[in-house]
Amino acid sequence: MKHLLSAQDLTQNDIIALLDMADHMAEINTRPVPKVPALRGKTVVSVFFEDSTRTRLSFETAAKRLSADTMTFSASTSSLNKGESLRDTIETLSAMRVDAFVVRHKSSGVPLQITEWTDASVINAGDGWHQHPTQALTDAFTITRSFGTPHTLEGRTIAIVGDVLHSRVARSNIAVLTKLGAKVVLVGPSTLIPIQAQQWPVEILHSLDEVVAEVDVVYMLRMQRERMETAFVPSLGEYTARFGLTPDRVSRMLAHALVMHPGPMNRGIDMVVDPAQVSGSRILQQVTNGIPVRMAVLFTLLGSGGSTALATGADL
């Protein structure tokens, strides 16, 4: 594996191997000195064309715990609206001998385009509405470890609720969770379900009340205020009434069911309950787990050395 661009590129075995390695990395994170020399001498650059402090810090912490050197390139969105400098930026950074780019961009497909302009590994840290594979791996790690079934989600039903249309998290999660055997139900108004999502391996419903009492995981998506302006929903109040996670809906959830959210939450709109008051909430666990999962991804791409071994003929 050279790049991690889309969760759709991962096989079931890839996912299981990454999650198992994340267990290993999680143990490192519990040590008095949570740092190993695995990626000494490797340089990881976070290239964040769209600001996301939490994802960037998660990746940089992961890289540092593996002893990689980290650099940050952040660009204001305004200067990139025209997009002219993208190729130049990447070629310039590549010339500094970078081993991996961690890329966040507001436009779908940019991490994939970048692979044409560099020899370094490229990790998609979120592109447009397209993909956010490390978030989905983190979520799969969180769910499988919560249920104690590290290699499968057979028999589990996961509802992904809200603005699926604009959600890279949803697209990545659909790919990862279904490959682990879960049944995924998309719940949202038709305006926020992608066109022809019926062709995806999911079930589509338009009422949270219909499923909230039956699913193993309620995965809430962020609902942005500006969606009202382009008539996706009549009002945020109506959205919350139909699709917000309210105390009443939490009270109807199965006893073992989990509540998840990729963050940042829009309190009072997508999340009406205080997650701290919900025993099944794994929202903070998702943040914690982001680090070992990203360590596993970085180590798999930069440290497993499969292709280099062939090139050097090393036999030890």
Binding site: K42, G303, G305, T308, L316
Partner: peptide, 9 residues
């Protein structure tokens, strides 16, 4: 030998 040969923890 990280990066020289496949390493599976």
């Amino acid at each position: 030998d990280i990066g020289i040969r496949p390493i599976v923890p």
